[in-house]
Design a protein around this nucleic acid. Structure first.
Length: 603
DNA sequence: TATATAATGAAACCCATG
DNA sequence: CATGGGTTTCATTATATA
């Protein structure tokens, strides 16, 4: 590829004055300085430090500095970048700044001991970058330029801490936890968190011996312009890719999508793998089942897998289960032997699924499967354009017209509903294709548009049910389930159709319309168990979980497909990867899963 | 106000070809 | 093995309409 402009590890090391004799590897850097951090609580950041952001300390003297200040970089960083690159090449300076920023972000996500939760969003990169360059420096004294400040002193300063936090830190410290762990836990769980909750969190952190990030709370809300932001995120992915030490030649274990995309096997394509050995950390209860789009930006699934105890994803295209494609990745610790599909098996072709279209289907439309059912449907004007384009010709339109029509039909999943007439799928047809009962999303005051959106964001029930089918034998008396990002209840419907009794279901879903749909389904299907609805996964904490689990004794299964908004290819605006505004909620899936594991382990 | 519609590409995959 | 064409993609946002 273009060997220019990217930030290789070598470039990085050459550009930075490490001022050290040690051979420093990127992943070995552990910015353990949390001192300044504890002074603030986690909420403070959310409330956004508007005043102190970009133009805070120091006065810029050059126009160049002003330029970069306007982009949101800190003065210290800019000074450093200029010092290294000179003032001539603006591009080079920008590269350096981006590198610092990306690296800082990277650190923030991969180093449990780092603690930038404390820096306001705009300065997040900055401070971290400084931490990075000054490495083991414990005191946040003055990061301006003097690198000699990093002595061997290991003592941490917590003198700036709020009294309440200090007390908690002290208690935890006496319990044998490090100050870093304590302060990070407080930052994450909030200043009012109980000691029990804090220890839970720390326990979770320790158990996940990943280079995890749960201390990184604030999603990067950097208000940079789009190009810069994209660039930054791209750099981050590049670094992530190089992270696994060593040159790119050494085969990174980059996860690749299987072809055909049948996971460990499907009912009709056969079994590829009937047994697997899970990583040690993934074996303990509860069972978990995580889902997201398969075609995420590079590196995303590597990160997700790393967090979910290094379990290998199972990529499955739902076109092997129904008439519509749906390429998804699933990470779970379920057994994979003796799976069975839902019956009756749904129709596998458009022809069988939508018999009425057969009459109008032209021979030159070779489609037998629909593409992915998305959240937006084709417009009426488009179908009208297509009709007019076709009416000008007889039964056999010229090739260029055919190509145009086919292209639009594939792009918008249009089907033939009349002579020369195509149309998008009706909501109830989408429900059927996805394995939901007819009118599952109907009523309750939901608009047609929102029905499409909810359905487009849902599971394909038959696919998920096939994976979950192994639970029927294990839990003949039913299960307690925690369902995160429930949506319209794909997992619930799947288990119900499998005949797995739902004893207690705690469902967390932000959309009221979706909660209404699940509630309504719950009542209509005469569920014997109890359905508890929560709204926001970010509000789910240890106390709440312990309380819930105490009442019925733990969860057997935790399912969830976290938001794909920032991963999906259809997103032209904010396909920012796993750190995107919504997709970063994945970390809450992990957090909650790990919390539950931790709690259940104690019992 | 609430709902429906139209405009808005690129990343990452496939696969044939040299 | 590189390359270049072909294909797909759980969407966001501004604007129009009822």
């Amino acid at each position: 590829m273009g060997g220019n402009g990217n930030v290789s590890g070598d470039d990085y090391e050459n550009n930075i004055d490490w001022d050290t004799d040690d051979e420093l590897e990127i992943e070995n850097i552990v910015p353990s300085s949390c001192s300044n951090g504890v002074a603030r609580n986690g909420e403070a950041i959310v409330s956004n430090g508007s005043g102190e952001a970009s133009t805070s300390r120091g006065v810029s003297n050059s126009k160049l500095v002003q330029h970069f200040l306007g982009m949101g970089f800190s003065e210290e960083m800019i000074a450093k970048a200029i010092k290294e690159n000179g003032e001539a090449d603006t591009e080079l300076i920008l590269e350096s700044l981006l590198t610092y920023g990306a690296l800082a972000l990277e650190e923030s996500h991969d180093e449990p001991n780092s603690c930038h939760i404390n820096s306001p969003p705009q300065q997040q990169f900055v401070n971290n970058g400084q931490q990075l360059s000054s490495d083991y420096d414990e005191s946040l004294a003055d990061l301006s330029d003097s690198d000699d400040s990093w002595s061997g002193s290991e003592a941490l300063e917590i003198s700036n801490s709020l009294p309440t936090n200090e007390k908690a830190i002290l208690s935890l410290s006496n319990m044998g936890y490090t100050v870093e762990e304590a302060s990070a836990a407080i930052a994450r769980c909030g200043p009012e968190a109980s000691i029990a909750e804090l220890t839970d969190f720390i326990c979770a952190a320790q158990m996940a011996k990943t280079e995890a990030v749960f201390f990184e709370e604030e999603k990067p809300k950097i208000s940079l312009n789009g190009d810069l932001k994209k660039r930054k995120l791209y750099e981050l992915e590049m670094l992530k890719r190089r992270k696994r030490r060593g040159p790119p030649t050494e085969d990174d274990e980059m996860i690749r999508l299987p072809n055909p995309m049948i996971g460990f096997g499907t009912p009709l394509e056969g079994i590829v793998l009937s047994h697997r050995t899970l990583p040690e950390a993934a074996i303990a209860p509860p069972y978990f089942y995580y889902e997201n789009v398969a075609l995420a930006p590079k590196g995303v699934w590597d990160t997700i897998s790393r967090f979910l105890y290094d379990v290998e994803p199972e990529f499955v295209d739902s076109k092997y289960f129904c008439a519509a494609a749906r390429k998804r990745g699933y990470i779970h610790n379920l057994p994979i032997t003796n799976r069975f599909p839902l019956v009756p098996l749904p129709p596998l072709t458009i022809n069988d699924a939508l018999p009425l279209t057969k009459r109008w289907w032209p021979a030159w439309d070779k489609r037998t499967k629909l593409n992915c059912l998305q959240t937006v449907i084709g417009s009426a004007k488009l179908t009208d354009r297509i009709r007019k384009a076709l009416e000008k010709w007889g039964d056999d339109p010229p090739e260029h017209v055919q190509r145009y029509v086919i292209e639009e039909c594939r792009k918008w999943n249009l089907v033939w509903v009349g002579k020369n007439k195509v149309a998008p799928l009706e909501p109830d047809e989408v429900e059927m294709l996805l394995g939901f009962p007819k009118n599952h999303t109907r009523g309750g005051g939901i608009s047609r548009t929102d029905r499409y959106k909810s359905l487009g964001n849902s599971f394909q029930v038959d696919t998920v049910a096939y994976h979950l089918s192994v639970l029927k034998e294990i839990f003949p008396r039913g299960i307690n389930m925690l369902s995160l990002f429930s949506g319209i209840g794909g997992a619930e419907v799947a288990l119900h159709r499998l005949g797995v009794p739902l004893n207690n279901v705690v469902s967390v879903e932000i959309s009221e319309a979706n909660r209404d749909i699940v509630r309504s389904w719950w009542e209509q299907t005469n569920q014997k168990g109890q359905l508890i609805h929560l709204t926001d996964v970010q509000q789910v904490n240890g106390d709440r979980l312990e309380q819930l689990m105490g009442s019925f004794g733990g969860f057997d299964l935790i399912v969830g497909g976290s938001p794909c908004n920032n991963l999906a290819g259809s997103n032209r605006v904010s396909r920012d990867g796993l750190e995107g505004e919504l997709s970063s909620l994945f970390y809450d899936y992990f957090r909650i899963l790990d919390l539950v594991k931790c709690i259940m382990n104690k019992q």
